[in-house]
């Protein structure tokens, strides 16, 4: 098993855990963190699988950088919305589906 594959499998596992968290957790803060774990998993797969012949491939590095920027922006938005939601309703989880 190459180190790339190990990274990739670990990434998939992280992604799965994160996705389950986003879906299943109730508390907003935890869901935001779960989203970040999910994103990190995807980045790990991207970097891990691209390590062929031990020559670093610049393209996935660029992609991951871009992805991190996006993830930071999304996290910031989620935190801002969650804070405001809590301030308005005093709750830290979403009301049930209608």
């Amino acid at each position: 098993m190459t180190s790339g594959l190990v990274f990739a499998l670990a990434g998939v596992a992280l992604f799965a855990m994160g996705a389950a968290g986003v879906l299943l957790l109730a508390e907003l803060m935890r869901r935001v963190l779960a989203f970040n774990i999910m994103g990190s998993g995807a980045f790990l797969v991207l970097v891990g699988l691209a390590q062929r012949n031990d020559v670093p491939d610049p393209v996935p590095q660029a992609m991951v950088l871009t992805g991190i920027v996006v993830a930071v922006a999304a996290t910031a938005l989620a935190l801002a919305l969650a804070r405001r939601y809590q301030a308005l309703g005093g709750r830290d989880e979403l009301a049930g589906d209608d």
Partner: peptide, 13 residues
């Protein structure tokens, strides 16, 4: 996120 993981796998392949 699911889409991105898919992209990563495609790039890997």
């Amino acid at each position: 996120g699911a889409y991105l993981l898919g992209v990563a796998l495609v790039y890997g392949a």
